[in-house]
């Protein structure tokens, strides 16, 4: 069955290459990804949070809930490794 992987992956690559033709050109300022909320972040970050680095202000303020979940995920991963490899042996 392993020989099946090569034609399946060739098909997948063809599908992906076909899908790229529907994407906007590289670096286009009017692309949909650059349209909705990101202009708001760029315009309001100094006024609302006083932080010049937009990535920091989005990460910690506008999307703080997201980052909270992310920190929980990494802490949970550490505890999961601890539980998998050192069960019953303590810290």
């Amino acid at each position: 069955m392993r020989w099946l992987a090569v034609p399946v992956m060739a098909l997948f690559l063809a599908l992906m290459l076909y899908a790229t033709t529907g994407l906007p050109l590289r670096g286009e300022p009017q692309a949909p990804a650059n349209a909705h909320v990101s202009p708001y972040y760029i315009e309001k970050t100094i006024e609302e949070t006083g932080t010049p680095n937009i990535v920091t202000s989005v990460l910690a303020d506008y999307r703080g809930y997201d980052t909270l979940g992310e920190t929980t995920v990494i802490l949970a991963a550490g505890l999961a490794c601890l539980l998998i490899l050192r069960r019953g042996k303590g810290l």
Partner: peptide, 28 residues
Amino acid sequence: LRFLGITIVEWSIAFSVCGTMVLLFDVL
């Protein structure tokens, strides 16, 4: 105030990530 809040959160993330990385290395 929001600037200050971001600072507190960044430091807490730094502590959390630092501790977890050392923990992962130790355990693995």
